[in-house]
Amino acid sequence: MFKLTPAAAEQVLKAAKHGGTEGLCLRLAAGQNPDGSIDYRMGFDDLSEDDIRLNSEGVDIVIAPDYVPLLDQTVMDYVELEPGQFHFIFLNPKDPTYRPPADG
């Protein structure tokens, strides 16, 4: 299913604490762009009746059933892309723009 790296989970938990949203789930959504690439969305939210619920690295995650096919097998990480600039990234083999991380 969907997984967080320890770095991503740590940052999500920090954001929830600083934003006053502790106790809420991390909601994930995705949409397919015209070129086939996937647009990822996330925010803190309550659990809804139809949601798929999972836990990764201590973070409660909810996904509406419609988004599961696009998010299945995805790993969310938190990385430094440029010196001092950290971002969440989504590693999804179903996304045509996906490139496996280089070792090292």
Rank of each mutant, 00 (worst) to 15 (best):
L91Y: 09
P96G: 03
V79Y: 11
F88D: 03
I61C: 09
T74A: 10
D77F: 08
I63L: 05
G58R: 03
Y67G: 06
P96D: 02
Y67D: 05
Y98M: 11
I61Y: 04
P69F: 07
P93G: 06
D95T: 01
I52C: 12
L70T: 04
D60M: 10
P65G: 09
P65H: 00
D72Y: 04
D95E: 09
D60F: 07
K94W: 12
F86N: 09
Q85C: 13
P93M: 12
H87F: 15
E82R: 11
L54G: 11
Y78C: 11
T97W: 15
H87A: 13
Y78E: 10
V62I: 15
D77M: 00
L91P: 04
R53G: 06
F86L: 12
Y78R: 04
N55M: 14
D51N: 05
G84K: 02
P65M: 04
V75K: 02
H87M: 12
H87R: 08
D66F: 15
M76Y: 11
P83D: 02
L81G: 14
G58W: 02
D72L: 06
F90Y: 12
V68M: 13
V59D: 02
Y98H: 10
R99S: 15
D77G: 07
Q73F: 15
T97Q: 15
D72P: 08
V79D: 06
S56P: 10
P93S: 03
D72W: 00
I61D: 03
R53S: 14
N55W: 13
